[in-house]
Amino acid sequence: MNTSVSHPSPPAASDIPAISADDVTTTSATSRAITHTLSDWVHKGTVAGIVWLVADADSVLDCEGIGCANIASGRPMKPDTFFWIASITKPMTTMAFMMLVEEGKIGLDDPVWKYLPEFARLKLKTASGVIKPPTHPITIREILSHTSGLPYATPAETPALDRYPLAQAVRSYAHEQLLFEPGSDFLYSNEGINIAGRLIELLSGRSYEDFMQQRLFSPLGMNDTTFWPDASQLARLASIYGIGPDKTALEEQTIAQLSHPLNDRARRYPVPAGGLFSSATDIAKFGRMLLRGGELDGHRYLRSETVTLMASRQIPAHVDNGYGLGTKLFSDSNVFGHNGATGANLSIDAKNGIVTVHLMHRNGWETADSDQVRLAFQASATGYRG
């Protein structure tokens, strides 16, 4: 399906004016350096615009927008520009789930079938094509760490991830075949985190979205975070871009992974693995709470040792990657968080005591691209550390 939305004369890289540090009014030399560094991706025509934020345990230190939220209209990126944050939803879902672990309602090493009996019948398909039972049932720890062997998503969830109620989507996963022995390898799987979202419903007696709102978003003051953007949020939503057929210019596109319209509560369903929309300052509240070991503004969400567990490696030693429970472990020492599909990133730097967020809307953005932006951003943010 062609999801492109044409607009007159999408600019080539040479058409986007260079942004100098001297052109930006910011509050410190460090923030000027960050804006100058990140503007390079905009000037090259790689992305239309970026919003960046730096916070410490106590407050947001700086937040700036660079480039355009919409190229055709010239609408600028601003600190309150709205984004689909995609897989940054995963650590938020996991955080909520771990509240139930702390309450003793479920154990990390419990088998999934204990709560969802249909998963007792899961089979494994070996590399040689043999279908057999796995050596052990998939566990809660494995679905949160992408080590269960479940696929990324079902064919019915391609391209749009949000077309089915959570209970229905999760039931369909029980009919799939595992791709490796549980616990033996790593495969990034939306299905595992969606199962965790369904378990939140079964254990709490509330819908997944209500639990997230009541136990996490409302107490944190994350009033700009939702699965269904309202009219005012849609007006602030950054347009999404991809490289056009000529491979030289950005063209405006749609978010193919989601159904439209985005505010349709009747036909769009929450996706625990990647359905949230938010803003940089809202994400920073969540990041600051993690940086503070599960507490913010006098409200404790998780014990500090639970946050440490989430940010501890949970995948086999032979896997050239880093992942905890619902959190990505970056190669940097003591830095954890998550990327999002269209260039979003949340990073918690526990060693240096800062949180960084950068947001963009770029289809086809790879993890390596996001890491380049993140590392350049954090290198420029050294003035905030210490």
Rank of each mutant, 00 (worst) to 15 (best):
residue 132 K to I: 09
residue 171 R to W: 11
residue 337 G to C: 07
residue 168 Q to K: 12
residue 183 G to Q: 11
residue 128 S to Y: 05
residue 156 A to D: 15
residue 45 G to D: 04
residue 64 E to Q: 14
residue 163 R to T: 13
residue 25 T to P: 05
residue 240 I to C: 07
residue 327 T to K: 14
residue 59 S to M: 04
residue 20 S to N: 13
residue 363 N to E: 00
residue 116 L to D: 02
residue 22 D to K: 01
residue 287 G to S: 00
residue 98 M to I: 03
residue 14 S to A: 15
residue 163 R to K: 15
residue 28 S to E: 07
residue 51 V to D: 15
residue 280 A to S: 11
residue 4 S to D: 08
residue 203 L to W: 02
residue 18 A to W: 00
residue 50 I to Q: 15
residue 91 P to V: 08
residue 74 G to T: 04
residue 40 D to N: 12
residue 99 M to E: 13
residue 173 Y to N: 12
residue 126 T to E: 13
residue 163 R to L: 15
residue 255 I to M: 03
residue 3 T to Y: 13
residue 71 I to Y: 07
residue 277 F to I: 02
residue 200 I to P: 08
residue 330 F to D: 07
residue 46 T to H: 10
residue 274 G to P: 13
residue 321 N to V: 00
residue 82 F to N: 02
residue 6 S to R: 00
residue 78 K to D: 02
residue 299 H to V: 08
residue 15 D to G: 04
residue 40 D to E: 12
residue 35 T to K: 11
residue 49 G to T: 01
residue 184 S to F: 09
residue 291 L to R: 01
residue 258 L to Y: 05
residue 39 S to V: 11
residue 130 V to H: 05
residue 214 Q to V: 09
residue 71 I to V: 09
residue 141 R to A: 03
residue 121 R to E: 05
residue 136 H to I: 08
residue 109 D to R: 13
residue 267 R to M: 11
residue 5 V to F: 06
residue 366 E to D: 04
residue 135 T to H: 05
residue 107 G to A: 01
residue 213 Q to F: 06
residue 373 V to Q: 11
residue 25 T to W: 04
residue 296 L to V: 01
residue 173 Y to G: 02
residue 238 A to R: 06
residue 220 L to D: 04
residue 19 I to A: 10
residue 153 A to E: 15
residue 383 G to S: 06
residue 204 S to M: 04
residue 127 A to C: 08
residue 68 C to M: 13
residue 20 S to R: 10
residue 20 S to M: 14
residue 133 P to K: 07
residue 119 F to Y: 06
residue 117 P to A: 12
residue 193 I to K: 05
residue 324 G to V: 13
residue 325 L to C: 02
residue 47 V to P: 06
residue 178 L to Y: 04
residue 223 N to H: 11
residue 87 S to L: 15
residue 16 I to W: 01
residue 147 T to C: 10
residue 138 I to S: 00
residue 50 I to R: 09
residue 113 W to V: 01
residue 123 K to L: 00
residue 223 N to Q: 06
residue 376 A to E: 15
residue 79 P to S: 09
residue 186 F to I: 10
residue 116 L to M: 06
residue 49 G to L: 05
residue 168 Q to L: 09
residue 371 D to G: 11
residue 266 A to W: 15
residue 244 G to T: 09
residue 255 I to C: 05
residue 228 W to V: 06
